[in-house]
Simulated scan of single mutants.
Amino acid sequence: MTHGRQRPVEITVRPADRPGDLGWVVMAHGETYAQQFGWGTDFEALVATIVADYASGHDPSREAAWIAEADGERVGSVFLVAGDEPGTAKLRVLLVTPKARGLGLGTRLVEQCLTFARQVGYRQVVLWTNDNLDSARRIYQAAGFSLIDERPHQNFGDGLVEQTWSLILHPALSEG
């Protein structure tokens, strides 16, 4: 896939409900982050845990996952799962593979997630990321997320700063 194609790339964002989708999410994260940042299997294990938790017990009325495809090939993912507090959801495992970047897929995946979160009545969406993921951070900021916490960590390598971002979806409902 190249951006300089003569014909437009056919983009699809669909539910992650086909055989192989969930395994692809784990594999793509592991391979992409190893190539880009040198992160090892600790990161892949984290993604595998998130995906396994979703696969083994998600509530379809309040949780969902999506796959982005370009010309029928999987190139992105995002999950929305229930958070630790009532009314709060977590945006998880956003990824667009390097060859599909620049097509607006990250924004489309986050928009899909937020639309679903609003439809099912969440008041807030939170997410955890690392400060070196510049493109993802720009997508989150453009969607209205605010940085609420950051601290250094060494889970996947030296010099990383974990960040927690939050977006209030229904301000009138979240005020006490």
Rank of each mutant, 00 (worst) to 15 (best):
100 A>M: 10
95 L>Q: 08
87 G>K: 05
50 I>N: 14
57 G>L: 02
8 P>N: 07
70 A>L: 11
173 L>C: 03
126 V>I: 15
13 V>D: 07
27 M>K: 08
20 G>I: 06
156 F>M: 03
104 G>D: 11
26 V>Q: 01
61 S>G: 07
46 L>Y: 13
101 R>T: 10
40 G>R: 05
132 N>I: 15
116 F>P: 06
55 A>M: 04
8 P>H: 08
149 D>A: 15
155 N>S: 12
23 G>M: 01
175 E>H: 11
70 A>M: 11
93 V>S: 14
44 E>N: 02
10 E>S: 11
55 A>Q: 12
72 G>N: 11
20 G>E: 03
57 G>P: 03
16 A>W: 03
141 Q>S: 06
51 V>K: 05
98 P>G: 10
59 D>L: 00
124 Q>P: 05
64 A>E: 12
5 R>Q: 14
115 T>Y: 04
162 E>H: 08
33 Y>S: 03
176 G>C: 09
65 A>Y: 09
167 L>G: 03
164 T>I: 14
56 S>K: 10
32 T>N: 04
161 V>T: 15
128 W>S: 14
114 L>W: 12
155 N>C: 04
84 D>I: 01
128 W>P: 02
152 P>Y: 09
93 V>K: 11
75 V>K: 05
78 V>T: 13
55 A>F: 04
47 V>A: 09
54 Y>T: 00
92 R>I: 01
53 D>S: 13
148 I>Q: 02
63 E>Q: 14
115 T>G: 12
41 T>C: 01
112 Q>A: 14
159 G>N: 10
134 D>F: 11
160 L>T: 06
51 V>T: 09
132 N>H: 15
115 T>C: 09
123 R>I: 02
77 S>W: 03
93 V>T: 14
21 D>F: 05
165 W>Q: 04
59 D>S: 01
174 S>M: 12
75 V>Q: 06
116 F>D: 05
122 Y>C: 09
4 G>H: 12
12 T>K: 13
147 L>F: 01
109 L>M: 08
166 S>V: 10
83 G>K: 03
37 F>W: 15
71 D>N: 15
79 F>W: 06
67 I>Q: 09
96 V>R: 05
128 W>D: 14
16 A>P: 07
51 V>C: 07
42 D>Q: 12
39 W>N: 01
98 P>D: 14
16 A>I: 09
100 A>E: 10
44 E>M: 13
3 H>E: 06
28 A>P: 00
56 S>W: 03
174 S>V: 13
45 A>E: 13
104 G>R: 09
15 P>C: 07
170 H>D: 15
40 G>D: 10
20 G>Y: 04
13 V>Q: 06
117 A>P: 08
115 T>M: 07
76 G>F: 05
115 T>P: 00
54 Y>L: 01
80 L>W: 00
55 A>P: 04
72 G>F: 11
24 W>I: 06
42 D>W: 01
31 E>P: 00
89 A>K: 03
13 V>N: 06
104 G>Y: 11
54 Y>V: 00
172 A>R: 10
137 R>S: 09
